[in-house]
């Protein structure tokens, strides 16, 4: 046995994970508590897995949007300097496709997932979960997908069927 392998065995013994390790792994991963894991887990799945508690509607969402988003994405999600967030419905098969949250995105959960990660652009992480639900509701409302007073929360968001959902195919399918 090489010295390296001997060293690795010592390491594994010291942590005592008891895990079955590949021959070439020193096994240095540290186990985490559920709380530590939750802190770094931002993933939200299309079925709603990962959505936090909280709720909001487009009425409150409008104020939050106008304060935090309008400067870059324009009034009601159009006419800003950055991505267009509303409109374009029915344009995808035409000569000038306009991809927006409303015309293109297949899953409503992606809106919450992305906003919580990345927006507002200059201060990501600054909005509460309630605020993000409300802005999500607002973007769905300005795209004529939900009513202005519809409450968006962990249960209702995954049930929202985006208008373009059925126009996607997968270039890769796992066995």
């Amino acid at each position: 046995m090489s010295t390296r392998n001997a060293l690795w065995l010592v390491c594994v013994g010291a942590i005592g994970t008891g895990a079955a390790l590949a021959d070439d792994s020193p096994g240095l991963g540290q186990e985490l508590t559920a709380r530590e894991l939750a802190a770094v887990d931002f993933t939200i799945m299309p079925d709603g897995d990962g959505l936090p508690a909280g709720a909001g509607d487009a009425v409150t969402g409008r104020d939050i949007y106008n304060q935090n988003c309008l400067a870059c994405h324009g009034e009601n999600g159009t006419g800003g300097v950055n991505d267009v967030l509303s409109g374009g419905h029915g344009s995808l098969a035409g000569p000038k496709p306009l991809k927006t949250v409303g015309s293109y995105w297949p899953y409503a959960t992606t809106i919450f997932d992305y906003l919580r990660r990345a927006m507002p652009f200059q201060m990501p992480g600054s909005l509460s979960n309630d605020d993000i639900y409300a802005v999500t509701a607002y973007l769905l409302f300005v795209n004529d997908i939900i009513a202005e007073d519809a409450e968006i929360n962990a249960e209702s968001l995954p049930l929202v069927k985006m208008p373009n959902r059925d126009n996607f195919v997968w270039g890769y399918t796992p066995e």
Partner: peptide, 18 residues
Amino acid sequence: TSKYSDLNEEGIARLFTF
């Protein structure tokens, strides 16, 4: 989804074209 997906002229988009 929004980005890095490939739209065809019929309005059908292909995901996961790695």
